[in-house]
């Protein structure tokens, strides 16, 4: 067994284990962390396929940004784990049937000769200086330009919609205006009063001081 296949099997084992734990972990934060592990190991798989751009982007986008926000929300939710798991055995038969059907379909795809998976022979190794970023960029901006632009438009619409949905104007929210804050000058806030450091003592005070000294 070559070194890459050892790596492949180790990564796959971790991937299957972590995916399984995502759905079985009791604590939702642990489940999210197993999902992170699953992302990282599948990035490792892509690395084995010599598509390091996709691997790194997967880590950058999903592990570095999406899952952080996921965790952010999960940590703040007050989730009653017992209540969530109540219906598990009641729904298990239906869910099990669906899972079995899906497994059957997938194994059919993998095993039937009609799927013609056998035609996919292992690719020749790419030269060391092959840059799949360049290839990907060339394809995205020439052959797949319209689908790419369409996808980005859809994403843009989603971003705008997400912001629009959360923009609720509340009357009782107080905002500071940074422009006003920056424009504040010293004279608006502080008044400096010039006064003598010493006050000439009045005659009565003098007598009192003299009394104190005697005492």
């Amino acid at each position: 067994m070559s070194f890459t296949s050892v790596v492949f099997y180790v990564l796959s084992a971790i991937l299957i284990f972590s995916s399984f734990k995502v759905i079985t972990a009791k604590n939702p934060v642990h489940a999210a962390l197993y999902l992170v592990l699953a992302f990282v190991t599948s990035a490792g798989h892509w690395m084995l396929l010599e598509s390091e751009f996709l691997a790194i982007t997967l880590v950058l986008v999903y592990v570095g940004a999406v899952m952080v926000l996921f965790l952010f929300v999960l940590m703040m939710l007050d989730i009653n784990i017992e209540k969530m798991r109540e219906g598990f055995w009641r729904h298990f038969p239906l869910a099990g049937v669906i899972a079995a059907v899906m497994m059957g379909e997938m194994s059919l795809v993998l095993m039937r000769p009609e799927a013609r998976l056998a035609e996919y022979t292992p690719r020749a190794a790419l030269p060391a200086d092959f840059s799949n970023i360049r290839e990907l960029g060339l394809l995205l901006y020439t052959r797949y330009l319209y689908p790419f632009e369409l996808a980005s438009m859809v994403l843009l619409v989603a971003i705008v919609a997400a912001i629009a949905l959360t923009m609720r104007k509340r009357k009782d929210t107080k905002f500071v205006n940074p422009g006003d804050q920056v424009a504040v000058r010293r004279n608006d806030r502080v008044r400096i009063v010039k006064m003598e450091a010493e006050k000439p003592a009045a005659a009565g005070d003098d007598a009192a001081a003299a009394d104190q000294q005697q005492a």
Binding site: F53, I56, T57, V59, L60, V63, G64, A65
Partner: peptide
């Protein structure tokens, strides 16, 4: 890209 991914 690697540095960006790792440091994220």
């Amino acid at each position: 890209l690697y540095i960006m991914a790792i440091s994220s």
